[in-house]
Computed example of a mutant assay.
Amino acid sequence: MEPKIGISADNLAKVAHALNSILADEYVLYTKTRNAHWNVEGPDFHTKHLFFESQYEQLDEIMDSVAERIRSLGHYAPATLKSFLELTHLSEVLHSKNDGAGFITELLNDHESIIIRLREDINIFANDLKDLGTSDYVTGLMETHEKMAWMLRSHLK
């Protein structure tokens, strides 16, 4: 049954498609953060191992929340690795050294890239697609990524 929430079916589809891309970015970032958690090495291993764990746990909650937002708008969330890789704008970069600083720099770049895209989407959702709820939701998501990026950035000083 189609939601009757004051947003046209066409706009709901456009919002859901944009959220699918956000979900894909979150999933790829989650996977990269898990990789850092599993494979970090160095004298600060234990601290970084726990730090990356706290970050991927936050990303796990974000992914669930984005998927539920998509469902609340009457659409299905993508749920395959193939679809995530087709929808994401992030890349799976492999580096040769599994040190904390390398992983942190890579993850920070991804968070900042996501923040920029979310910031661009906020007004599109509100003004063009008439979905203030998703605009507000994405604002909160952007703020969460800003805090996560700050935590990563602080390790590089």
Rank of each mutant, 00 (worst) to 15 (best):
K4R: 06
L23I: 03
D60C: 08
E112K: 14
H46K: 11
D64H: 08
G133S: 07
L50T: 06
E120D: 15
L85Q: 01
I124T: 04
M63N: 00
E112C: 02
D44N: 14
I7W: 15
S91D: 09
G133E: 10
L73C: 07
T47Y: 01
T80L: 07
L90P: 04
D10I: 14
T139C: 04
E86Y: 05
N98P: 03
N39Q: 13
N11E: 09
H37V: 15
R117P: 06
Q55T: 15
I70Q: 12
E53L: 11
Y27V: 10
S8G: 01
L87H: 07
L90Q: 02
A67S: 04
N123M: 07
D64L: 06
D10S: 05
L108W: 02
A77F: 10
L59Y: 08
V93H: 05
V138F: 08
L19P: 12
V28W: 10
S65N: 14
Y30V: 12
H49T: 13
W38F: 06
P3C: 11
Y56H: 06
L90C: 02
P3A: 12
D44H: 10
E53T: 15
A16G: 09
S72A: 15
L12D: 11
D60K: 04
L73V: 12
H49F: 12
L118W: 09
H46E: 11
D25N: 15
H17S: 13
V15I: 12
Y30I: 11
T139R: 06
L12F: 10
G100I: 08
V40N: 01
F52G: 04
S96Y: 01
A13K: 14
T139D: 03
N98Q: 06
N123R: 08
H75F: 14
